[in-house]
């Protein structure tokens, strides 16, 4: 297969970036999208150029490191698929492919296609945990949790923290990311205890990081590679209201 790649190149956070065009021949349909970029980079290096910087690690859709904005969509054209799981057989021979980094002011570009997502970390530091010390846990089965609740909590917990939701959203909102954690904990007996403080602190941090508001377009759910549901945003809003109405300590 043959492609024309239009790739965003930017030397560093302060530099001005722009698209550069790279024709690429002899791509196998079996290659993953990132293997295709590896192949391009090999040619760039051997030709004396600097390779395109892009981030990745597990290459199997679970670590959340990779994340490219491909032809105007986070992680490209396939639903429920991360960039590293995308394969070239999903493109047509001769296609032009635009490749950009996540675009959001809370995710500044580091270099080329790599962005800084440490704002997500700080949201988690604000409240993404259950306050329990090592060694004080009761026997696991002393707190039964219905299968449907456990399954729903799992669905929320499946977030890989890639940031596609933010990249998909016209307001760069991080609601899907934060709500998945808030909802997961709010559902189960272990997490309920500090639900009010949690939602309050995480939402506050989210705002402080400069993420936008939600205007219900659901593009985040549509582009989330793990299919995290926008229903969790509704849960988060309810939790938030509850925390405001009844005070944090109540």
């Amino acid at each position: 297969m043959e492609f024309t790649l239009k790739i965003w190149r930017q030397q560093n956070a302060g530099a001005k970036g722009g698209f550069k065009t790279y024709p690429l021949k002899d791509v196998s349909p079996e290659m993953s999208f990132l293997e295709m970029l590896d192949y391009l980079n090999k040619q760039l290096i051997e030709g004396g150029d600097e390779p395109v910087t892009f981030e990745h690690d597990c290459r199997e859709g679970i670590c959340g490191t990779c994340g490219l904005y491909i032809n105007g969509r986070p992680h490209g054209p396939m639903r429920d698929t991360t960039t590293c799981e995308l394969h070239m057989r999903e493109f047509a021979d001769g296609d032009t492919i635009f490749i950009e980094p996540w675009r959001a002011s809370a995710f500044p570009v580091i270099k080329d296609l790599a962005v800084d997502r440490s704002s997500f970390e700080r949201i988690m530091h604000a409240g993404g945990f259950i306050s329990t010390n090592t060694g004080c846990a009761p026997e696991s089965n002393s707190n039964p949790i219905g299968k449907h609740v456990a399954d729903l909590a799992f669905d929320a917990a499946a977030c890989i923290g890639c940031g596609a939701c933010v990249a998909a959203c016209k307001n760069s909102s991080a609601m899907l990311f934060a709500s998945a954690k808030i909802a997961q904990y709010a559902m189960t007996p272990q997490g309920k205890v500090e639900r009010k403080e949690r939602v309050d602190q995480m939402v506050r941090q989210m705002d402080a990081e400069g993420f936008g508001a939600c205007s219900n377009t659901y593009s985040c759910e549509f582009d989330c590679p793990k299919g995290i549901s926008v229903d969790f945003i509704a849960t988060m809003n309810k939790e938030f209201l509850y925390s405001k109405l009844f005070g944090q300590k109540g």
């Binding site: 945990f129 259950i130 846990a137 219905g146 189960t188």
Partner: peptide, 22 residues
């Protein structure tokens, strides 16, 4: 066994059966 108990306390959503146990 302590590891499993601690994870449960941390909210790790292990698979459960219909009666609610792990």
């Amino acid at each position: 066994n302590d590891v499993i108990d601690h994870f449960t306390a941390l909210g790790v959503p292990f698979a459960r059966d219909y009666g609610g146990s792990l």
